[in-house]
Design a protein around this nucleic acid. Structure first.
Lengths: 132, 132
DNA sequence: TAACTGTTATACTTATAATACAACAGTTAT
DNA sequence: ATAACTGTTGTATTATAAGTATAACAGTTA
């Protein structure tokens, strides 16, 4: 699992970590049951503090993306992924809304916008690569 | 212009202000040339500090959504809206990407996702209302 | 026994968000 | 003229979040 951090980003480090791990799952690079580095080794590898990694793992655990066996380590949830709950849909719409509004203000058509979304979806799920 | 703030939100107040004004423009409720409340009156109306409103206005001005005449006040840009620049597209894609990734992880299909986006686009631009 | 695992606790630093109070320069209506 | 308004700027303060540093605990594994 390759992690790319932007220290100049306005996004907190732990948020960037969460995002990249979720994208790893979405892309298939991280498969169910696959182990993740320990909080200490990952922190050491990318040069950040243990607590920052721990915060990201804790969030991912609360949502159900990963499982934590007390002394065995961290793994991608081997059984299931988080559901499409009403709470999640509300969160997602709340995030999309200002993005869509700005696009409209700038004159972007619905077709353009949907095409961008489709493009990103394809980029993430592109099947022409295998990760083993 | 009705402003609805969520003081419990993780989003800063000035960000909520920016978002709501941009959505006002996108929906047509705020038309080109239309005046916005002064920093003091808006701050007073919604019970926040002058500087918080000023920060939101400054950001909107920098992007080109509003114009500020030194002593005349603030208006929605009467001539043009910000363009769809490469920088903007990069920002937009960077915001969409983690949202799409999470949706994929949770098993949402491309069709479902596009439908949500379309729904939000329609909600914002619905033409069955007139704002005069 | 030594090296590892997640977890927890405390303390500290830094940056951002928001507020409070004040003033300046220019405009507008009385 | 003068009072009331405009955006702008400055400084100081408080609160919260982010990140780091150091340390320890309990259980696992080689």
């Amino acid at each position: 699992m390759i992690i790319q951090l932007d220290m100049q980003s306005e996004l907190p480090i732990y948020t960037q970590l969460v995002n990249q791990i979720i994208e790893g799952i979405a892309s298939g690079r991280l498969k169910p049951g696959e182990p993740l580095p320990s909080v200490r080794s990952l922190a050491s590898d990318i040069g950040i503090n243990l607590h920052t990694v721990n915060k990201a793992y804790t969030l991912l655990k609360q949502e159900g993306f990963i499982l934590v066996h007390r002394q065995r380590g961290v793994v991608i949830n081997p059984d299931s992924m988080p559901e499409i709950t009403k709470a999640y849909m509300g969160k997602m719409r709340g995030e999309l809304r200002p993005i869509v509004a700005e696009a409209i203000s700038r004159g972007m058509s619905q077709e353009q916008l949907l095409q961008e979304m489709e493009q990103i979806y394809q980029e993430i799920t592109q099947t022409d690569k295998e990760y083993d």
